[in-house]
C-alpha cells in the first residue's frame, strides 16, 4: 500500500533527516514508528502527507508516486489518509460536529451523507453527546477523540497518528489506542508514532525503529527497543 524506496531527505542546512529508507506497509497493518526526538519520524510522516518532498527516492501510495501528484490530486490523496496529531489541531471556532463535518464537506460529500455519518463517527469515539461542544469545552482526551472521528469519517485507507497520546493521561492514552485498534480492526491501516513504551509493548504489532534517519529495526511483533 505505502512504499518508501531508497528515500533520502536532506535539509538545505546540509543535515540529513532520512537516509536510504526502504519501508513497505501493507493494507490493514498497524505499524508503530519509534525513535528518539530528531530521529526523523516527523519528516517521514511529512513525506507521506506530501507536505515535503524527498531529496531522492520515491514514496508511493498504491503504486502512485505521491510527490508527482498535481495539486488537486494531492487534495484527493489526503482525503484517503486521515491524520491525528499530538496537539489535536481542531478548528477552534467550530463545534465537534462541525469539525468532523468539515472533513466531509472538503471531500465534497452531500448534506445527507454528512447528517448521517458525522453523528455515527462521533458515536464511534463515544462523543455523540458532546457534538455541539467547542474544542475549548472539551478535555484533551475528548479533543483527540474528535480528531479521530474527523480522521475516520471519510473512511480513509490509512490513518497517520503522530504522537496522538503525547498530551494525554494514562487512562485517555489507553482509550485512544483502543480506539485506533478498533479502527484498524475495521480495515483501516494505522501508522502510529509514539514515545510511549507501554503502548508499544501492549500492542504487540509491527514496530519500525528509526535511528539517525535510518531504519534501525523492523520487527513484526515488536517491543519498544531504542
Amino acid at each position: 500500500m505505502l512504499k518508501f524506496t531508497d528515500v533520502t531527505k536532506l535539509y538545505h542546512t546540509g543535515d540529513t533527516a532520512l537516509k536510504d529508507i526502504n519501508i513497505h506497509i501493507k493494507a490493514k497493518e498497524f505499524v508503530s514508528i519509534i525513535g528518539h526526538s530528531g530521529a526523523g519520524k516527523t519528516t517521514l510522516l511529512k513525506l507521506i502527507l506530501a507536505e515535503e518532498g524527498p531529496t531522492s527516492g520515491t514514496v508511493t501510495f498504491e503504486d502512485v508516486d505521491i510527490h508527482k501528484l498535481k495539486r488537486s490530486n494531492i487534495n484527493k490523496y489526503r482525503r484517503r489518509v486521515g491524520t491525528v496529531f499530538q496537539d489535536f489541531r481542531l478548528l477552534p471556532d467550530k463545534t465537534a460536529y462541525e469539525n468532523v463535518a468539515f472533513a466531509m464537506e472538503a471531500a465534497g460529500m452531500d448534506d445527507e451523507a454528512i447528517l448521517n455519518d458525522v453523528p455515527h463517527a462521533l458515536d464511534l469515539v463515544g462523543l455523540k453527546h458532546k457534538m455541539h461542544s467547542f474544542p475549548d469545552e472539551l478535555s484533551g482526551g475528548e479533543k483527540q477523540r474528535v480528531a479521530i472521528a474527523r480522521a475516520i469519517v471519510n473512511q480513509p485507507d490509512m490513518i497517520i497518528a503522530d504522537e496522538p497520546t503525547g498530551n494525554l493521561d494514562p487512562v485517555n492514552t489507553y482509550e485512544i489506542i483502543q480506539l485506533l485498534k478498533k479502527v484498524n480492526d475495521l480495515g483501516t491501516t494505522i501508522l502510529l508514532t509514539t514515545h510511549n513504551v507501554g503502548v508499544i509493548d501492549n500492542l504487540g504489532r509491527r514496530v519500525i525503529t528509526i535511528k539517525d534517519g535510518q531504519v534501525a529495526l523492523d520487527s513484526h511483533e515488536g517491543k519498544y527497543i531504542l
Binding site: 507536505e51 490523496y77 478548528l91 472538503a106
Partner: peptide, 15 residues
C-alpha cells in the same frame, strides 16, 4: 494553523 489543518484534511485551495 486552521488553514494548514484544512489543507491536511484534503480541502482544496478554493474551498
Amino acid at each position: 494553523e486552521e488553514v494548514s489543518v484544512m489543507r491536511l484534511v484534503g480541502a482544496s485551495e478554493t474551498y
